[in-house]
């Protein structure tokens, strides 16, 4: 067979030397980040340090490149096609994290549910919520208040209902940074658990508490909910339940059966985090069994 013409990419990277080549396995999928900017490479290493490094080749669709072009712009390319264009390379990091996150949860072979997840002692607390309801800010507030980090994005559960950590960098809005007292770097500020003085939880955990959080109330209040209310919440917020709906139903009902379920009304993320630590943390949790 003769190849008449080589298939062309959307952008020709030409002779650009990619000095950065970071490869990580994230929720079972291999990702590769390439760049010609060493400072950016160091930041990428830092942001994805919690994920297993791999030497495997990533699929083209999971290879992301940030490169300087002759016109002075940096471009973020995925599968050789432009995702976004901006000025300094570091400003492309939120788009890089967002691109990896979107595909990682969708491609995960495990059930992934939109939720923030933190641990304290033997307790693992999930905040299921859609985007824009303060889940990341509340997760970050918990990390500033002594909790360990599992994810600000997805509660990932294996077949037995054990939690698989997905400690992606947290993307904080300007409002979140202001509320938490963190210096903002732009529209979105990426931070790691370590940046917030927290550690990433290791090993398999079972969810002990599901907290349906509502921001905008005059104070902090935690009210128990029927366990069965968790089932539609978890399934309604799942990213990939359509891959195996029967399995998703089984895992969601298993989790609902074995957890405590709460409605949290709160006025401020940091106050809510401290309130949760005092109400659900080790030492007092046994007296709150419902």
């Amino acid at each position: 067979m003769k190849i008449q013409q080589r298939a062309s990419c959307g952008y020709d990277l030409g002779d650009i030397q990619m000095t950065v080549d970071e490869r990580h396995r994230i929720l079972g999928t291999d990702y590769r980040v390439r760049s010609d900017d060493r400072a950016l490479g160091a930041r990428v290493r830092d942001l994805f340090a919690s994920f297993e490094k791999t030497r495997n080749a990533a699929r083209a669709a999971n290879t992301i490149q940030i490169a300087a072009f002759p016109d002075g712009t940096h471009r973020l390319l995925r599968d050789c096609y432009r995702v976004t264009v901006q000025g300094p390379a570091v400003q492309l990091l939120p788009a890089l994290v967002s691109t990896i996150n979107r595909t990682a949860v969708e491609e995960s072979p495990e059930l992934a549910i939109h939720a923030g997840v933190v641990t304290i002692g033997d307790y693992t607390i999930a905040f299921p919520s859609a985007s824009g309801n303060g889940k990341t800010t509340l997760t970050a507030a918990c990390l500033l208040s002594g909790f360990s980090y599992i994810s600000d994005e997805a509660l990932v559960l294996d077949d037995s209902g054990s939690v698989i950590p997905y400690p992606k960098p947290l993307a904080l809005s300007k409002w979140s940074c202001e509320t938490l007292g963190i210096a903002a770097e732009g529209e979105e500020t990426l931070v790691t658990a370590a940046d917030l003085g927290a550690v990433v939880a290791q090993g398999a955990n079972q969810v002990t508490d599901v907290v349906v959080a509502e921001f905008g109330h005059p104070g902090e209040e935690l009210v128990p909910l029927p366990k069965s209310e968790t089932v539609p919440v978890l399934l309604g917020l799942a990213f990939n339940h359509f891959k195996d709906p029967a399995r998703a139903f089984r895992i969601a009902t298993d989790v609902a059966s074995s957890t405590r379920v709460w409605n949290l009304k709160y006025s401020h993320p940091l106050r809510a985090a401290l309130y949760l630590r005092d109400r659900l943390g080790p030492g007092v949790a046994s007296s709150l069994a419902v």
Binding site: S228, P245, F249, S257
Partner: peptide
């Protein structure tokens, strides 16, 4: 059919209704 804390949860795999 699964019970969660005394409440019945139903799932129909053909319609994917819960």
């Amino acid at each position: 059919e699964t019970e969660v804390d005394g409440d019945v949860c139903l799932y129909d795999p053909t319609s994917e209704r819960v």
